[in-house]
């Protein structure tokens, strides 16, 4: 497949995928906003949401899987921290369109080959 791009893609597409899934949810974007102000334990995040502790934990888990936040244990608390490098990635608007079209042109190629 010969795709040439106006801009260089420097991250594996697998990493992007989970980032995009992670930020597709409004609650997880809000969690990122809260964590952008500094690291916090889950207990301090829950009051900002109309959700259970378990639900917030689940969203944080998805963010961690995507590499958008890291977690560490401190006593009985789990402290979450946003990852600036990954956040920069999702703020790159043009990068999102780039990934979108790159993917769609691949699909177009597949469609043409099959029909």
């Amino acid at each position: 497949m010969d795709i040439s791009l106006g801009m260089q893609i420097d991250r594996a597409s697998t990493a992007r995928v989970d980032i995009f899934h992670a930020v597709a949810d409004a609650n997880r974007r809000k969690l990122l906003d809260l964590l952008a102000a500094g690291e916090r334990p889950v207990q301090e995040l829950v009051p900002h949401f109309d959700m259970s502790f378990q639900a917030v934990s689940q969203h944080l888990h998805i963010l961690a899987e995507a590499g958008l936040v890291t977690r560490r244990k401190q006593g009985r608390y789990r402290i979450y921290r946003a990852q600036p490098a990954a956040l920069r990635d999702i703020h790159d608007w043009a990068g999102q369109y780039r990934a979108f079209w790159e993917n769609r042109l691949e699909r177009l190629g597949g469609y043409l080959d099959e029909t």
């Binding site: 992007r16 995009f20 899934h21 597709a24 993917n103």
Partner: peptide
């Protein structure tokens, strides 16, 4: 603001 495009979700699903 908060309007992250959900199309990226479908992109994610497609790639996965």
């Amino acid at each position: 603001g908060g309007g992250w495009p959900g199309k990226l979700e479908s992109l994610g699903q497609t790639l996965r």
